[in-house]
Amino acid sequence: MLSVAGRGKFTSASNDTVRDCTPEMIRWWFENLVRQTTWDGIGFNGPEISYHLWHHRDHVSVAPLTGSHNKGFATHEKSRITEQFNDHHNKIEVDVYTERLDDEEFNFSIKKFGFTAVHLNHFYSAEGDGSRCYAENVVGLDVPLLGWLFNWVILPFIYSKRTAEHWIRHNVEETGRSE
């Protein structure tokens, strides 16, 4: 789903079910993305896996920037995400601030020039055979006048409809690999 929210902001979203995975397991995953572990689908006797293997084509790295116990993402801590989209044609490296990470939501924001420019929200809840996941990306400034001008004039050159479509595809593939 792609829509233009108020004052020119873009919202893109995707949803899916991650089978055999509880919301607590999803929270643990976000909290421990930097760590290496082994997993064979049943126990911890398989090959090493990491953030990169969660989405092998797009994910490059997650690096905690603050917090001594931060091993991926942690509430009220900063991390750096490096990813590549559009078959390696677009590379991003952004510092993110985790606002919430618990058994229902994982949300972070990206600030530019002191303003919040992006909110990435992950929502998950228990469902019969796993967890229902919904991810939403809201891009644009929510600042009177300056935000409206930025969102309508500049934002389409930075975050186009095509970029949003790449993000949606990325998120659908990522959620599919979560199992």
Rank of each mutant, 00 (worst) to 15 (best):
M1L: 07
M1D: 08
M1K: 09
L2Y: 15
L2R: 09
R7D: 03
F10T: 00
N15P: 00
D16G: 09
V18I: 15
R19P: 14
D20C: 12
E24S: 09
M25S: 11
W28F: 13
F30H: 08
N32I: 04
L33C: 07
L33A: 04
L33F: 07
V34Y: 10
R35S: 12
R35T: 08
T37C: 10
W39Y: 15
G43H: 12
G46W: 10
P47W: 03
I49F: 08
Y51P: 04
Y51M: 10
L53K: 11
L53A: 00
S61Y: 11
S61V: 06
P64L: 10
L65E: 15
G67H: 13
T75Y: 05
T75I: 09
H76M: 13
S79F: 04
I81M: 13
E83P: 08
Q84W: 08
N90C: 08
K91Q: 15
K91C: 11
E93M: 13
D95T: 15
E99D: 13
R100M: 10
E104G: 02
F106G: 00
S109I: 15
F113E: 10
F115V: 12
T116P: 03
A117I: 06
V118N: 09
H119S: 09
N121P: 00
N121K: 14
F123Y: 12
Y124T: 05
G128D: 15
G130H: 07
S131F: 07
A135V: 09
L141E: 02
L141N: 00
L141V: 05
D142M: 05
V143I: 15
P144Y: 00
P144G: 03
P144D: 03
L145I: 15
G147Y: 03
F150D: 01
N151D: 04
I154W: 01
L155T: 01
P156N: 03
F157D: 03
I158F: 14
Y159I: 02
Y159E: 00
S160K: 08
T163M: 11
N171F: 04
V172N: 14
V172F: 08
T175I: 14
R177C: 10
S178H: 06
